[in-house]
Amino acid sequence: MSAITTVVPPRVRKLLEISPRTRGALTNGPIQIVTVVAIFLVGKAAVPGFAQPYSVKAMLVIASFLGIAALGQTFVVLIGGIDLSVPALIGAGNVIGARLSGEGMNSVEVIAIVLVIGLLVGAVNGLVTSVWHLPPLVVTLATGSVVGGAVLIWTNATLSGSAPSWLTKFTSAASSTGPLPVAPVVILWLALAVVAQVFIRRSRPGRQIFMLGANRQAAELMLVSERTISAVCFGLSGALASLAGFLLAGFTGAGLFTVGDPYLFLSIAAVVIGGTSLLGGRGGVFRTVLGSLTLVELTTLLVGQSLSSAAQQAVLGAVIVCVTALYGRDRNVRDRV
């Protein structure tokens, strides 16, 4: 073993390579929490008032809208899909909710209608993609376009309706939930996340989601029905998106069809930053909760730096890529041979 040491792999490469075990540990959660805390500390140091209770509460409210929509997106990403109809459904939930409430309809009925519409559109997405084996990207783009257009026609592209008063309170950063000092919408978001976690861990369809995402062909042979699971995942995504839209009405006051537009990429970014793989089969819902928090913190931080919205966007884009680089990296082609 004397002259053999001539073949030393480049040190630099070794430093950059994270061992599979470390990467596994990283993608399993702690780093997402560390990221959330780290950005919070940076914000506290850099932006006056960042860590004030009011500002934290406000961030949580904003995060809950994103978080609920991203929760739905998570299900779709777990089966290896992507849902681009989220913004249209947020817009639809928002407009329908505000219009019907403005016409004096009972809020329970309104919520039911909103949820059913989201669920149906989502289920159509799921069925179309699974029955004809079409790329979800294109299908959801198309249905999103149809739904968005229909809402436009219905409202004639104007601001309409009004949010019920309880909803305004429900989503106000200043309000609290019983003894808890955060707005009810935040509690709702976290409760939904817990339910979703139980669903994916402790139910048969929940486990089947992972199998379908990891290997479609093998899943079929293991009696996983691609149609059912796709319909469920896309349906949940649709329902949660339209719910987020409805809740946003409390924030915006009236129904506006464009309210969902920023959520197209934000909902995907929250899922990815949380560490759920776009290739399917790997990830989880709590990660998306953390991903949503990270994104909202970042945006607040950038606003606090008094950057223009344009510059914010540019920085955000770069940060998303860098954060994902920490734990969202694919396997090297060498390791896959």
Binding site: V198, R201, R202, S203, R204, G206, R207, Q208, F210, M211, A214, N215, Q217, A218, A219, L221, M222, L223, V224, G281, R282
Partner: peptide, 28 residues
């Protein structure tokens, strides 16, 4: 390709088609 999902745990690859046996009150 057809037999397993290699990123998933062994136990999931084992239990997938027979999961309904592990349910009590609908919960696994």
């Amino acid at each position: 390709v057809e037999g397993m999902a290699d990123v998933l745990p062994i136990i999931d690859n084992y239990s997938m088609p027979t999961l309904d046996r592990d349910r009590i009150g609908g919960v696994l």
